[in-house]
Simulated scan of single mutants.
Amino acid sequence: MNDAEFSLLQLPGIWRAKEGLNVSGCTRQETGHRELDKALNGGFPPSGLVRIRSHLGIGELSLLQSIICQPKSQKLLVFVAAPGLVQAPWLKQLGVDLPQVYVIQPPNDNEALWATEQCLKSGACRMVVLWQTALQPKPARRLQVAATHNHTLCLLMESLQSSRLSLPVTLDLALHPSEQSLYADILKQQGGWPRENIPVRLQHTPDNSAIMKAMAAASPIYSGSSQAG
């Protein structure tokens, strides 16, 4: 090994697969889904740009419930360019402190990127969730640097139908629906290995037994008897 190669390998950003994943001092954010957390070496990274590709409305945000619903703090949770309305009752049900939530609806993708970068650079946000159709590598790098330097998690939500470009992200996930659950593919993760078909179970609605139990416990609105005379 020459001096140039030795100097290169001393850089803190260089990781070699044979060294394994050094998670000491790195606090991961658990998703609450055991198989996924195991494959992610403990959960989501605490900061950086994370891309999640999925079909819209299959439970992609419900998957992130444990991460979105962090202990109360003075930092903000920001949604940028959401494809639908971000409902306050849903956030309240998750346990999110509503005064700490900001929703930004820019008129186009360029302004959405600008708003996201400003939120990350401000240091006032704990998480920024951005929806984009096809983010390019150069602006993705800007978001990655801003998120990492300011210890903020930036979630990039993309459609599976859009072309998948190689981006400088800390974590790259794809979600696929099934009848009983979702399946997650880890396409790339910093300091770890890709993995496919990780089951993620979500319960969107009560089952019949829960409904019947609730009805049995409820008092009847009207009861009485009548006799023919």
Rank of each mutant, 00 (worst) to 15 (best):
M1D: 10
D3S: 13
D3T: 13
F6D: 08
S7G: 03
Q10L: 09
L11N: 14
I14P: 04
I14F: 12
G20H: 10
N22L: 03
S24I: 11
G25W: 08
G25Q: 13
C26Q: 15
C26R: 15
C26K: 15
T27P: 03
T31Y: 07
H33N: 04
K38G: 02
N41T: 10
G42N: 10
G42V: 01
P45S: 06
G48C: 04
V50W: 08
R53F: 04
S54W: 07
S54E: 05
G57Q: 12
E60F: 05
E60V: 02
L61I: 08
L63V: 07
L63H: 02
L64S: 01
Q65S: 11
I68G: 00
P71C: 05
Q74L: 14
A81V: 00
A82H: 13
L85Q: 14
Q87C: 06
A88L: 11
P89I: 12
Q93N: 14
D97M: 08
L98G: 02
I104Q: 10
A112C: 04
A115L: 08
Q118G: 01
Q118Y: 13
L120W: 07
L120Q: 03
K121M: 06
S122P: 05
C125P: 03
C125W: 04
C125T: 15
V129C: 12
Q132C: 12
Q136L: 14
K138F: 10
V145Q: 05
V145M: 11
V145K: 03
A147Y: 00
T152P: 00
C154F: 01
M157D: 02
M157I: 03
S159T: 11
L165G: 06
L167F: 04
P168W: 14
L171M: 05
L173V: 06
L173Y: 06
L175F: 12
H176R: 05
P177K: 03
S181W: 09
L182K: 00
Y183F: 14
Y183H: 12
D185A: 03
D185E: 06
K188G: 03
Q190D: 02
Q190I: 03
G192C: 05
E196G: 01
I198S: 04
P206N: 10
D207F: 07
D207H: 14
S209T: 07
I211K: 07
M215D: 03
A216E: 15
A217I: 10
I221L: 15
Y222V: 11
Y222S: 11
S223N: 13
G224S: 07
A228C: 06
